[in-house]
Amino acid sequence: MSASPSKSNVVPLFAMEHREDDALMALSREHRAAFDTLVARHQHALLRIAAKYLGDVAAAKDVCQAVFLEVYQSRHRYQPRGRFTHWLRRVLLSRCHIAARKGRLVERTRPEPGPTPSQPDELILAEERRRLVEAHVSKPSEKHREVVVLRYAGEHPLEEIADILEVPLGTVKSRLFAAMAALSDSMKEEAP
């Protein structure tokens, strides 16, 4: 027998995703396949945030590996509260802060391959801009940087960022605008 839909059963899609994540975390205590699904669901979002934060794909990969390993090892202790994605972002940012502080990313030792000549000019320019911007993302402070990467690389609305970082919405906005200004200033300084 299926339950008829009622207003009380309607929950926001994001909340539903959180609950599915919680269910997968519970299952993954015994079944690796459940955790595999969880990783597949979140890995690209995490990689995008970490790569933007650290400005280095290889380092982002290392950090995300460490995050998922940490989550897997703590799966028995995870308390489902319907906020898995936010918690995962917090774990990721904490790892990113540590990786950045260690100074292992002072120099980019593994440069990404440049655009291939067959790409249209527009794409080549966009790719060059991306590299330039990523080289400057480290300029704003940690607190400002994390807001920028959650907003643009993670595509989180400002309200969600406030939830993830557990700070007021007004703080998120002021950090975001200050970070963008710092980024713009930094890029202007370097411009010929």
Binding site: R32, D36, V39, A40, Q43, H44, L47, R48, A51, K52, V57, A60, K61, C64, Q65, F68, L69, Y72, E112, P113, P115, A126, E127, R129, R130, L132, V133, E134, V137, V148, V149, R151, Y152, A153, E155, M180, L183, S184, M187
Partner: peptide, 23 residues
């Protein structure tokens, strides 16, 4: 352009699968 660059992932990033190394 700045916002687009901040959103744009590095080439090949979305093709990475962490799972084999993770296990």
């Amino acid at each position: 352009a700045l916002m687009e660059s901040l959103s744009r992932p590095a080439p090949g990033l979305d093709a990475i699968d962490l799972r084999p190394d993770l296990w």
